Amino acid sequence: MENSDKLIDKAITHSVLHKANTRGHANHGWLESHHTFSFANYHNPDRMNFGALRVLNDDRVNQGMGFGEHPHDNMEIISIPLEGDLEHQDSMGNTTVIKQGDIQVMSAGTGLYHSEYNKNKDQLVKFLQIWVYPNKKNVTPRYDQITLDLNDRHNKLQQILSPNPEDEGVWIHQDAWFHIGKFDNGFSTSYELKKPENGIYAFVLKGDFMIGNIAVNERDGLEIWDTNTIKITANTANAEILLMEVPMQF
């Protein structure tokens, strides 16, 4: 993957663009959340999921506040901190703190309880919480977190999640691959899907991009399916993007 005029610039013919300002929005005072897909009090029958991707929440939690203990089951739950420190506790006995550069995963399986709090009293915590439907039900609940080198996503796509425990990043019970890249202005790269029957959901963390022939801006999301490869070009400096390849049938 490199900046090259030889990269194929294929038009994307099967896609749906979700502009940032069309997401569901909830402000609970201590929590402000934007929902890409239907969640809690936000219900949009046209935005229930994208294949196995069920939830993409963009959360901001005030100083010292958080989510009390609550249950989950039969879902793969991924948290990606963007700013600040998030403290996690669960019924498996884990007490941890995750921050930018960390990736956290829980396989809820037969059921677990957990809580999440802003560790700090002087700054917001911002993070993405993502739910993916598993390909196996009622597995033994599992927790993991890792710290990745942020330099490894400069002008390339750093893998942060896969189905394989031996690969880079965390792993989940699903044929899904997640990557994050942070690019210089004008830098282009391509992403080739691991499985041709999968789709990809692109979510812009910062800046502006062209994905194939489609312009996407900060916090926009783009559903793409029926393609093998996409081309990505950053149109601003320090542009950052999350790519989530997931099964369309599961």
Rank of each mutant, 00 (worst) to 15 (best):
L242N: 01
F50G: 04
D90N: 11
H43A: 09
P134D: 12
A20R: 10
Y201R: 00
G221Q: 05
L86Y: 00
N155A: 07
N49W: 14
V204C: 08
I130Y: 00
G109H: 07
K136W: 03
T13I: 15
L112I: 05
T233P: 02
K19L: 15
G93F: 07
K206V: 10
K156E: 15
E166Q: 15
T110Q: 15
T147S: 09
E223W: 10
G24A: 01
T13A: 12
K126D: 11
T147Y: 05
N3M: 05
A108L: 07
N155W: 07
G66K: 00
I12R: 00
L31C: 08
N118F: 07
G29Y: 02
T110C: 06
Q89R: 09
N213Y: 13
Q174C: 09
V132T: 04
S91V: 08
A40W: 00
G68I: 11
I98E: 03
K6R: 11
S15M: 04
T229S: 11
F187M: 03
Q249S: 14
N217K: 10
I160N: 01
E218R: 11
M92V: 10
Q63F: 15
L7M: 12
T140R: 03
T147E: 08
G66S: 07
N27P: 07
H72N: 06
L161W: 02
M1S: 11
D226W: 05
